[in-house]
Computed example of a mutant assay.
Amino acid sequence: MPPTLSAISPSLGPTTGGTIVTLTGTGLTGATSVRFGSTPASFTVNSDTQITVVSPVGSAGAVAVTVVSPAGTSKAVTFTYVAAAVPVVTAVAPSNGPTLGGTSVTITGTGFTGATAVRFADVPAASFSVNSATQITAVTPTGNPGGAAVTVTTPGGTSAVSAAAYFFYAAPPVLTDSAPAQGPASGGTVVTLTGSSLLNASVVRFGATNATSFTIVSSTQITATAPPGTGSTQITVVTPGGTSNPVPFVYFPAPTLTGLAPVSGPTSASAVVTLTGTNLATATKVTFGATVSAFTVSSDTQITATAPAGPAGPVSVSVSTAGGSSASLIYTRVAAPAI
């Protein structure tokens, strides 16, 4: 009995040929020829019920596909040649993302109907969906840092590479240091972040709060202004390459002064004054007016300082710490009695 054909898949392809087509039927083992119209095609007999064939070049329209064997010629199934235009990619948005892939991009262009493949530097997209003849949504595969040409393949061919058809893979940002790594709870500390792959940073975060402002100095350095906060937190940087590892930053509460003992003393540098208050442990400076005094931190609530020499009269005393400067209290220098 002659061979029979019951199905063809796919049933259409470009006039340029090259479509891999699967023919299903019976009695195919002894096939000697497969024809698209009168044109022979290259084929492989997979089994008695299946043949794989490559469509030859053809003219737009329907053509009869038949199988010939010593037992005769099968009845025909129909393959349709499509004069499809070669697709063109005109834009990729966003045009950058992390090397680990997973970025959803919108590819804009023409001739996308029937797209069979989307590639990023010859690597197939993780997935893609043809939204229309002019738009495809694709998910990037993993890639190497740098530019990757984006191409779309349809029955009409594969799009050409152009400057508009690139996706740029960014290496993940890395932070190695923050300086200073502490500041007042009120914010405002300008922190220098060092690391690598910091270009195109879009966000700098102190915990879950965005930096008040930041400046990209280079691929290895960013300066950021700390927002208000409390306690220990982590600084991270977000770039097209993803989110960096965290580096620590500690907020210190502002110091307060509640008392001086004694509240007065001689004009000479001899009186030892005990300052009491809160958040004094990180004290960096004690001033009497504009003069810095020697001091010792006894605890988070107490400092002893030597009042510097100065003219008789009141002078403001304040403490500076990692959390800022305290409000001042008044210390009065008393002139020695004249004889």
Rank of each mutant, 00 (worst) to 15 (best):
P3F: 11
L5G: 05
S6H: 03
S9A: 11
L12Q: 15
G18P: 04
G18C: 01
V21K: 06
L23Y: 05
T29W: 06
T39L: 09
A41H: 02
V45Y: 13
V45L: 07
S47F: 15
Q50F: 08
I51G: 05
P56M: 13
G58S: 00
G58N: 07
A62L: 03
A62T: 11
A62H: 05
V68L: 11
P70D: 14
P70L: 12
S74D: 13
T80A: 14
Y81F: 08
V82W: 09
V82I: 10
V88M: 01
A91I: 09
P94T: 11
L100T: 15
G102C: 05
T106S: 09
T110F: 06
G114Y: 06
A117H: 04
R119I: 03
V123S: 12
V123N: 10
S129F: 01
N131F: 07
S132F: 01
I136D: 01
A138Y: 02
N144P: 08
G147Q: 08
G147D: 13
T151M: 07
V152I: 02
T154S: 07
P155D: 13
T158K: 05
S159V: 00
Y166H: 08
F167G: 00
Y169H: 04
A170K: 09
P173A: 15
T176W: 02
T176E: 12
P180A: 12
P184L: 15
G187L: 10
T189G: 03
V190D: 03
V191K: 04
V191H: 00
L193H: 04
L193P: 02
G195Q: 09
V204D: 01
V204T: 02
V204R: 00
V204C: 06
V204G: 09
R205T: 05
A211Y: 01
S213G: 08
I216H: 03
I216S: 11
V217L: 10
T220R: 10
T223A: 06
P227V: 01
P228Q: 12
G229A: 01
T230G: 15
S232L: 12
G241D: 12
N245R: 02
Y251F: 06
P253W: 14
T267D: 02
S270W: 11
A271E: 10
V272M: 03
L280W: 12
V297A: 01
A305Y: 09
P311E: 13
G313F: 10
P314Y: 14
P314E: 14
V317Y: 15
S320I: 14
T321N: 05
A327I: 00
P337T: 09
A338M: 10
I339S: 15
